[in-house]
Amino acid sequence: MGYADWKDQVSEFKKMDVRGVAGNFLQGLKQQAAALPVGSGIEVVQTFEPIPLYEVMDLLGYQHHTEKAAENEYHAYFYRTEKKGSLEEIPERPAVITNYPMIDEKLGTLAVEFWDLTWNSKNRYLDYNVRLLLSLSNAVGAGRKRQAVRELLKAYANGLDSRALDDVFQQFAWNMGIGYFSSEIAPSPLFQAYKIVKQMEKQGKSRAEINRALKEKFSGGNPGGKGDGC
């Protein structure tokens, strides 16, 4: 089945015009997409091609077709062909990208293309989880703890063995020093997320249960508990 098989139904799709929307609309979109029955769809209107949505919707059983209606106006149609996946299995995506068109619409397009090149290009050599751990480590070094939490959540949701996290935190202690680790890393939301993983695994909880607990606690990596679009 392809676009030709369902293109006559797009006029009936639920329409979400997110141009200029501040904050993270992705959570609401995912919830609506997960609830829709097979044979229905969603139309998303954005100022740039919504590439980050493609994998998310594919994991929920959607096909997609995107058209450029005008300069800085894209219509992405998502049609559900099968019911699969769950919200707990859906990877996080960079909600901050939606803020760039508010500054400059061309900047929004460039940001999406740069993100796609960095994370999805077939030219990348390192495993996706390895790149997430590198990003996590860079974020810690730059003092961006919220980003570091997001990378941990994404890597674990993507199947990362928690023993890799053991190695990462051991490297933090070695490279940053015990004093810094004790005062800055150990009390941080990042280490809280790590402890949740290790403690729940020890209790015999499934990865899906752990991912759900992490999302409920950090909501996409925001220590405050509610996503703020960063």
Rank of each mutant, 00 (worst) to 15 (best):
N123L: 09
I185P: 03
N72T: 10
V149D: 01
Q147T: 10
V112G: 00
V149S: 02
V21Y: 13
R146G: 06
S162G: 08
S11V: 11
A33F: 02
G177Q: 06
A213H: 06
S40L: 12
I51L: 11
Q147C: 11
A22K: 15
L132N: 00
L60D: 02
V130D: 08
R19C: 02
G177P: 03
G141E: 04
A22G: 10
T109C: 14
G143K: 05
G227Q: 04
E92V: 05
E82N: 07
V10D: 01
M200F: 09
L26N: 14
S219F: 13
K14G: 13
N211Y: 05
K215T: 14
R207E: 07
C230M: 15
H75F: 03
M176G: 07
I103T: 10
R19Q: 01
D5F: 09
F169Y: 05
D8A: 10
L36M: 07
Q9D: 12
S121M: 04
G227A: 04
W174R: 11
K145A: 15
L132M: 01
Y79E: 02
T81E: 13
L53E: 01
K14A: 14
A22H: 14
M57T: 03
A22I: 12
L153A: 05
D127S: 03
K215A: 15
Y128S: 06
N120S: 08
A173I: 11
A164E: 14
D8I: 11
D58N: 14
A213S: 06
Q63C: 15
Q9P: 10
G2N: 09
V10P: 03
P101V: 00
L133W: 00
Q199E: 12
K30C: 14
L132A: 00
K83D: 12
K217N: 05
V130S: 07
F172K: 02
A148Y: 04
Y156A: 00
K84V: 07
E105C: 07
A148H: 02
V10R: 02
G179V: 15
E67M: 03
K106H: 13
V18Q: 03
L153R: 05
K198N: 05
P223K: 03
A213G: 02
Y62N: 00
L110E: 12
Y54F: 09
P223E: 04
D17T: 01
L160V: 03
R150H: 10
T98E: 15
V149C: 00
S219L: 15
E12W: 14
E49P: 13
D228C: 09
T98G: 14
A34G: 12
Q31K: 14
D127H: 05
E89C: 07
G141F: 03
I210Y: 06
T47P: 11
Y194T: 01
